[in-house]
Write a protein that binds this DNA or RNA. Sequence first.
DNA 1: GTGAATTAGGTATGTACCGTACGTAACTCC
DNA 2: GGAGTTACGTACGGTACATACCTAATTCAC
Lengths: 410, 410
Amino acid sequence: MPVAAGTRYMREVNTAAVLTLLRTVEHTSAPELARQAGLSRQAVSRSLSDLGEAGLVEFLAPVRSGVGSGRPAQRVRFRAEAGHVLGASVSPERIRVGLADLSGRVVAAHDTPPPVSEEIGSEVTARALTDAAHRVLAQARIEVGGVWHASIGVPGIVDPATGRVRFAPSMPGVTGDVLIRALGEATGREVYLDNDVKLATVGELWHGGGHRSMVLIHWGERVGAGVVVAGALHRGAANDAGDLGYLDLFTDAPAPDRGEDDAFLGAFEAWTGTGAFAALGREAARERGDHTLLTRLARPETRTATLVAAVTDGAPAALAALEEITRRFAQGVGAVRALLDPGVVVVGGPMARCGPTLLTALRAHLRRQRLDPPPLELSRLGEDAVVQGALRHSLDQVEHTRLRPPSTTG
Amino acid sequence: MPVAAGTRYMREVNTAAVLTLLRTVEHTSAPELARQAGLSRQAVSRSLSDLGEAGLVEFLAPVRSGVGSGRPAQRVRFRAEAGHVLGASVSPERIRVGLADLSGRVVAAHDTPPPVSEEIGSEVTARALTDAAHRVLAQARIEVGGVWHASIGVPGIVDPATGRVRFAPSMPGVTGDVLIRALGEATGREVYLDNDVKLATVGELWHGGGHRSMVLIHWGERVGAGVVVAGALHRGAANDAGDLGYLDLFTDAPAPDRGEDDAFLGAFEAWTGTGAFAALGREAARERGDHTLLTRLARPETRTATLVAAVTDGAPAALAALEEITRRFAQGVGAVRALLDPGVVVVGGPMARCGPTLLTALRAHLRRQRLDPPPLELSRLGEDAVVQGALRHSLDQVEHTRLRPPSTTG
DNA sequence: GTGAATTAGGTATGTACCGTACGTAACTCC
DNA sequence: GGAGTTACGTACGGTACATACCTAATTCAC
């Protein structure tokens, strides 16, 4: 149903165009905007005065020390502080909340471990989240009403239409709509909730090199991917695209090693996740008589950190484990390459802490495959990717609802 | 760089909206269009008279036998015959050309085997293509100038920006720009050329159920896929997305059977292609003492057709081969499911001629995987998919260049 | 058969937007 | 201090769409 409209619509289009230009620079002037937008200065001025009344634009005093001659232009500035968005990441390890203004600049952040009694009831986790949210608002001296949108990322299967968590094996307490309800009541706004890897992908895409297609692979205990095609996240028919952990490469191969606490692990993540990495590390340490490493790897909760540190220290047993785990992982990257031919593959999650050594090893294995390997990068945001992606999602929502004209054609 | 424009732009938007509405129905009236577009009747009338002068709209006599009372409206009709597009498929087996009007209706088609002396020089194939093109034009009594755009699909690796064929192992004669140059000179228009599987995917998407995401798997001697995400074909960074044939599932598995003439086959297509199917069929026929089938399978050029016929006839040896080949193929479908979670997976190519039996067998294997299997369908267009996709691509080009307003925001 | 009701087409008027033009303001350079 | 340059503000003209009103054509009821 393409729908067209009258002159009022044209005005909205032009105002939105002016605003978009304005948002890309620190400050500028009406004549400059007119040149960039292809509009007359008057049309720009009209739009600017509308935007000024809406609180989105501030008029600044003219700058006197212009190099060229002529009357100095009145400067205008996008008022990024006119509104704010909230982004949160809730995982078994951390509750992270960030507050950003309309330009995406983070003005306050909070990072706290989740309450230990999480399994008692989801209300505890939800309260910890809203507490953190109130804390960042206080920190930035922003009223609750100044939050225009909020998004949350959690590890689990999410229905993105409703924001309900269908299944979250690592934190059963957040199943259902506890989190969006709690944060919704706290902010008075509708809250978006999505899978953490998907939001992390949005975050990496935002701060990455502007790739049109990209795959972020979260490499940890579990393995999951976010698929970006044509500059946008691809969710899949059941919001389950990028479920790399369940890739089954091993038709005729023997059953892969499995970790200990992994009833729900898929074939690929059981074979390549941090559980398998620790098993490989123990084996290599035993073979090489590295008793120090072997002892340290006995503690399950720190085994991945131990092994990653051993890799960066150059311990031979750890490097041997890395060699094997990257050989396996390269098979998954190869499948991604064959199907999607992405512009870049970004590796994130706990394994990414191994650093460039990881990519070097991966690249060596990929070169043995028959297809040209995709460019590899390490996650730029690390732990922050989920919050950044949540902020980006909220900013997108705000831009589409409050900073844009209605779409021309449906 | 968002650019806005004046009232003239608004007019173009509205005219395009009217035209889009008009193209969805047989014929309609100005008041009806006004209601649908949300415009006044006058605005619609102005747009219609512009479109009439451009030859895109025809005014019909009012229909007298209206059911309700009132003055009968003048009817208007989209003149689909105002322009035509040409779509072609060039393969070692056939040269197919179709001519469609602006509504996508095929008004003439031609289907011929390619010249046998193909390897002597590409000019022979190119001339066969232009001959076929002139034939469909004569058949439909259309002047060459009435062709607004043309597209060609070929089996091979193509640079979609230039339309040059980089590598076509099955028909080396078409390497380079011979085909687009020949058809370009014949039609006087720029010609688009792309990989045949990618265009077939566009065709299936067009005539399919309007899925937002879809994967078409061409299953023949080679295996390739077309990936549709968000309603559009995904090409990949090097135009190599969907290269399912090079999927390597078999890290620790023994090297798969390979056909005889397959220096360039990837691991997956060597294991699941029609070559492997024939090998499985021979083995099964030998085991079961089906000498008739064994004899027939000795002829390489008809072995796939023989085996497909045996499958539809219910021959036990053929069904056993089908069972094994679908078991293997299901691994690839599983990888597609895990990474992309498509709304539907369409199976095309020579293997699709096995019919619903193929899908039934595939589904049984997919149910054993841990992820919910995607819906499976057989190709609706079969051999015609490439030509249909080429026509659709040309229609898209025409719509974006001649039937649409300039985009609002860049 | 004739008139009321209904709906479409055509023309005039009003409103809104953009662009051009012109006068005024402010600043720099000589 | 004047010339040159650039920005701002207002006025005017062009174009598009919406509304209003009149005429035309057809159906239905009596």
